[in-house]
């Protein structure tokens, strides 16, 4: 584990890699790191996330993304993303839809070094037809299931409330599967609001699954970071009103 700073991000993350991103819609998105990527020469990224908003738009706007695997990209009640929508509609970016189960079990399989999981859901949807990570199979009882293949992202970037000097990370809110994301990913980069002491029960992600820590106050702004700041709704609405199709 190494403490580093935002200027190093562009040297760590490589073009054409799979980048998993933590947080959920307008909550705890690692936007300070994302802005570094957006302003770098990195390109051709495949983003893997549950529910995205500004982080996806920032990167799509700067033509850094070739593929998005997600269950949702939007701003909840605040509206949808013109930038990502337009990039997908014009064929500049491919959107490979996930469900929550599909998102989670791909990471869980990757984290546990299991090639796949089976699920009863997804089988009768069109998602199974368009998502390259799943397929119909028959289980030992002859029942049709959806086989969900594992994923091991090249990088994951996660914003958290706190880390200690040893590199253990504390996410002070319900998880969006960041534990599995960190365990499944090859190189794990965290931005944190602060460094301090952590009690053993506070450790969400153990230092063995942490490669880089960047101290970044308000590193998720204008998305929220529970216990530190709420999403800045006014700022997000302004962004949505001013964003242009690309």
């Amino acid at each position: 584990m190494k403490f580093t700073d935002l200027s190093e991000v562009s040297n760590i993350i490589k073009s054409n890699s799979i980048v998993a991103i933590g947080g959920f819609t307008i909550n705890r998105k690692p936007l300070a790191i994302i802005k570094e990527i957006a302003n770098s020469n990195i390109a051709g990224l495949h983003l893997y996330l549950l529910a995205g908003s500004l982080e996806v738009d920032y990167l799509v706007e700067k033509s850094k993304v070739k593929k998005i695997s997600a269950a949702y990209v939007g701003y909840e009640g605040l509206g949808s993303s013109k930038i990502t929508r337009n990039a997908v509609e014009t064929g500049k970016v491919y959107f490979e839809d996930l469900t929550e189960i599909l998102y989670y079990f791909r990471l869980k399989a990757g984290a546990e070094n299991i090639p796949f999981f089976l699920t009863d859901s997804i089988v009768n949807t069109d998602i199974i037809k368009i998502n390259s990570a799943c397929e119909k199979v028959s289980d030992s009882m002859g029942k049709v299931k959806c086989k969900i293949n594992s994923i091991n992202p090249d990088f994951c970037i996660i914003h958290a409330q706190k880390a200690d000097r040893y590199g253990n990370v504390f996410i002070n809110e319900p998880d969006f599967s960041e534990k599995e994301m960190a365990r499944a990913s090859k190189i794990r980069i965290f931005s944190v609001e602060e460094i301090g002491e952590l009690k053993s029960e506070e450790i969400t992600i153990s230092k063995e699954f942490v490669d880089y820590i960047i101290i970044s106050k308000k590193g998720a702004y204008p998305t929220g970071c529970k216990g530190h700041y709420e999403p800045d709704i006014k700022e997000i609405i302004n962004y949505l009103e001013n964003e242009q199709n690309i």
Partner: peptide, 26 residues
């Protein structure tokens, strides 16, 4: 909740379905 039009050439790309099929199923 995914696309209006085809998935390959969407007329309107919708935000996405989250876990709707997971819910309907389980």
């Amino acid at each position: 909740n995914t696309v209006i039009g085809t998935h390959k050439n969407p007329k309107i790309r919708l935000p996405g379905g989250m876990g709707v099929d997971d819910i309907v199923h389980y």
